[in-house]
Design a protein around this nucleic acid. Structure first.
Lengths: 121, 121
DNA sequence: CTGAATCCGCGCGGATACTG
DNA sequence: CAGTATCCGCGCGGATTCAG
């Protein structure tokens, strides 16, 4: 069904995936949630650099795309937990494949970039 | 070496990959190039909707990140060919994994989105 | 044919302040 | 604790025009 190459039309299908997890903090959030359910403030602490608002928006969008489940516990003080959906869990493998690629080529890419920038000084 | 989950810190590493191919048209371009070298105008025709400028910028950025090789043939009229680098070829597999996920969950995600939007009308 | 230059609008992300 | 509301700057992408 597939020859191992990425057919032309599928380039667009791949973009759909990026539109799901392409937010600046989406992958970092999912990485956190892959370790189990997390509270809002836990995520906020773990992801140094993210603002409350952006974290909120990111979670909302992930929830909208069925990648994250939001559970509110009616207590005082309020408690809200986020966890990955089964759909999102199946993303782990593909993502790890990308991760492997990254760790293998990160250095080369960085060096190539330096060379490129140097050539076009 | 890895437990199948995505460790927290690696969320940021994954973002680096997205920064490489996260351009709106980058994946579509790579998909085209995975079928072999292509000329600028060929890409322009294949990717309906992209402007010359954006295509040019996209290619330049891919080239900077060592994902695309640019070859100029000193002829009249000028001819320029783009092709994937070995690094980029190794991205095919991870990308196909993502593609598989997409085709498997596309419908569910879309439906979930409708439900979400409906609930928050 | 293959770009580069300019202009412009929109969306995303960050900072800050307020609320149930 | 877990958000929402408002403002704002910047970068990306699109349209158009000019050039080697």
């Amino acid at each position: 069904m597939d020859d191992g190459k990425v057919p032309s039309a599928e380039g667009f299908a791949l973009r759909e995936v990026l539109d799901l997890v392409g937010d600046k903090w989406a992958l970092a959030v999912l990485a956190q949630l892959s370790g189990g359910p997390r509270r809002f403030s836990e995520l906020e602490r773990a992801l140094t650099g993210v603002s409350r608002r952006i974290l909120s928006l990111t979670l909302r969008r992930l929830e909208r795309n069925s990648l994250v489940m939001r559970t509110v516990y009616p207590e005082v003080p309020p408690r809200v937990e986020y966890e990955m959906t089964p759909h999102a869990r199946e993303l782990d493998a593909p993502l790890c494949a990308l991760l492997a690629w990254a760790s293998k080529h990160r250095a080369k890419v960085a060096e190539g970039r330096r060379a490129y920038d140097l050539a076009n000084a």
